[in-house]
Design a binder for these strands. Structure first.
Length: 491
DNA sequence: TTTTGAGTTGTTCGA
DNA sequence: GTCGAACAACTCAAA
């Protein structure tokens, strides 16, 4: 093949997907190492081909993240080419226009995306174009993590022990010093045009919170290392405190790599209040482990996005109720902590992890709504919507997944509120109509004395809903439903 | 093949 | 207020 310009090799295409960063990007590094000009491209329809369309919130984040990626590329003398259409067709076209002979990308460890990539690889090969695929989104190679019998893990602890017995994730790569471009740039769509109608009405109230893009991700990690990590073991469950890393959307879109987070966090120590000693940041690294585990499970059990991993749960007597689902989605359940969480989600596209469990438990166990409905809503409204993490989380709460909590573990929304939002600050922030209530009653306004309510300006049933269901009764109903399942599944 | 130990995140009740 | 037991046995993973 003839070179496109004197003294230059054929350009290499770098197909950006869930790796919207310049540093520690193995595909980009590999392309640059070849010494060829680099054509970075993002293909708009590729998420849909991945088996589930990104939700409204996710689209909003993606749009901003792509703008940031384009800026970062331009600082290195490059740019991001935006195209729309079926991935294979777009790549073939672009390869033809630029005389590219190799396309580089990083794997997305999701079943449908993996299948699509196999087809793209085959299709490009037919056109005489090579591909080079790297791992930029997981700490450990999925093929290396297997039981002694060679099978997948279904329990987190042995999975994580196995991961830790493998060699340490390699050090992150630095961003390439320069990104030489082709002699002439191929056409590109304008991001503003493509994303004009990206945010559907359902999640239309979500405001952009956080800073999409690599710079935002790096700043967020720095903030966490300075302000959050030291108190992580004690503060991570407190929605009223900034105790978590808030890296989830950045990790989902690959604005920062788990390797970068791993190495930054491993270098620090954390005070462990239960032991009274300084320890490694193991508690946080385990959270990265859960992310790995979620991808491991999705890879080996691809049907679990819609079907329970424990098959007997297919017969569980869920009660579909559109009105109840809508009340949960709006944050009008009458349980202040649940409503605070759902409103935080709808307002900001994010929810504290502890509260995610509580609202999920309420949907599945108090309302007996199928966990798939909750999973779908989360995918639609979360900026960090991630198929693997979301699937594991919901199946775990519903008790039908890997390493599931026993079904009789049912969160009490009042008790959880008292324990993890002791002053009620989190509820006051997101359920302002209860802000005047003293801490003692803020998690159970229906039990507050009349004079307390009137002084706080709260009229149950008018300014704030009565509990949509009595928790103790709902708990008994859930246990009964679970016992019925056990009987059916038995011999 | 059999055995053994263990399993993210809870709640309630009674002593 | 604090503590341990019960919840219901089951499945997983390794020895």
């Amino acid at each position: 093949m003839a070179p496109t310009a004197a003294g230059k090799r054929n350009p290499a295409i770098v197909w950006f997907r869930r790796d919207l960063r310049i540093s520690d990007n193995p595909a980009l590094s590999a392309a640059v190492a070849g010494g060829a000009p680099v054509v970075p491209v993002y293909i708009i329809d590729s998420e849909k081909e991945g088996g589930y369309p990104a939700g409204g919130a996710s689209q909003l984040w993606l749009h901003r993240s792509l703008i940031e990626l384009d800026h970062a590329l331009r600082e290195s003398g490059s740019r991001l080419v935006i195209r729309q259409g079926p991935s294979l067709q777009v790549l073939r076209e672009l390869a033809g226009q630029t005389a590219t002979s190799c396309v580089y990308w990083n794997t997305i460890y999701e079943p449908a995306a993996g299948k699509r990539d196999v087809e793209v690889t085959r299709g490009l090969a037919e056109g005489g174009c090579e591909t080079e695929i790297s791992n930029g989104s997981l700490l450990f190679e999925p093929a290396d993590v297997c039981t002694s019998g060679g099978g997948p893990y279904r329990v987190f602890t042995p999975f994580w022990k196995k991961c830790r017995s493998l060699s340490e994730p390699s050090s992150p790569r630095k961003a390439p010093k320069a990104l030489p471009g082709p002699s002439s740039w191929p056409d590109s769509l304008a991001l503003g045009d493509v994303f004009r109608d990206a945010c559907p009405a359902r999640s239309g109230g979500i405001r952009m919170t956080g800073s999409p893009g690599e710079k935002g991700a790096v700043a967020m990690l720095a903030r966490f290392l300075d302000e959050g990590l030291a108190g992580y073991p004690e503060n991570r469950d407190r929605p009223d405190l900034p105790g978590t890393s808030r890296l989830s959307p950045h990790l989902h879109f690959g604005e920062i790599s788990p390797r970068q987070v791993w190495h930054a966090v491993s270098a620090r120590t954390v005070y462990d209040p239960s032991q009274g000693v300084e320890r490694g940041a193991e508690a946080f690294l385990r959270q990265l482990g859960w992310r790995e585990f979620a991808h491991h499970l999705l890879h080996h059990f691809p049907e679990t996005t819609t079907l329970p991993l424990r098959e007997e749960f297919a017969a569980f007597p869920w009660k579909y109720d559109g009105k109840a689902l809508a009340a949960w989605q709006r944050g009008d359940t009458g349980y202040p902590l649940v409503d605070a969480g759902m409103r935080e989600l709808l307002g900001t596209g994010w929810m504290h992890n502890r509260v995610r469990m509580i609202v999920a438990s309420f949907l599945v166990k108090d309302l007996l709504l199928p966990w798939q409905e909750g999973a779908r809503w989360f995918l639609e409204t979360l900026f960090d919507a991630d198929l693997a993490n979301n699937t594991l989380g919901w199946q775990w709460v519903a008790g039908c997944g890997a390493d599931a909590a026993p079904f009789f573990r049912i969160f009490n929304p009042v008790g959880q509120g008292r324990r993890y939002d002791p002053k009620g600050d989190y509820v006051r922030k997101w359920v302002p109509e209860l802000a005047g209530l003293p801490s003692k009653w803020i998690h159970c306004p229906w039990q507050a004395p009349k004079e307390v309510l009137s002084e706080a300006g709260v009229t149950p049933g008018k300014t704030y809903p009565q509990p949509m269901i009595d928790h103790p009764a709902a708990r008994e109903r859930a246990l009964k439903a679970w016992r019925s399942l056990k009987r059916k599944a038995g011999p």
